[in-house]
Amino acid sequence: MTLSTDLRSAITHVMDHHGGPRAAMLESLRMIQQAHGWVCDAHLEEAADILGVSNAEMEDIATFYSLIFRQPVGERLILMCDGASCYLNGGEDVRDAVMARLGIGFGQTTPDGKYTLINICCVGGCDHAPAAVIGRDRKLVGPLTADLIDEILGEAAK
């Protein structure tokens, strides 16, 4: 057992109050991720066990939704918008700058485990294009420039 007692009871609560085990699967995965940053095999299996669903059923959901992470992610997530409005405002230059600075591509984590860079569809920040959402609280940042990137990454490095 590796999930905290709180998390285990939260999962049970969702199951009892939001439509049973099936509907609680996704919510459980989200809660695990909230607590641990990602969903490891042991946690997925334990949650499946609490809900009485199969591991395969859990994995079905976990791998369908793009913001459930089945691999470890860095301390800080950078979800860069790759939508058209951001593209039209130089989003790809910013993207290249970020990649160059961090030395990683989309879907990768820096070797020091600090950053994970992910591309995501339009983040609803077209009025701040190019935009990204950053961190576990998904803070919207933009319009991004190379300078701003330095600032943001510098701040996080502290």
Binding site: G19, A24, F64, S66
Partner: peptide, 21 residues
């Protein structure tokens, strides 16, 4: 938990039921 298709109303309903959208 992310996926554009969740916005399609019937896919949204599937997602609420805890299924693939």
């Amino acid at each position: 938990a992310g996926r554009y298709i969740v916005g399609e109303e019937t896919a949204l309903i599937e997602a609420l039921e805890g299924k693939r959208a």
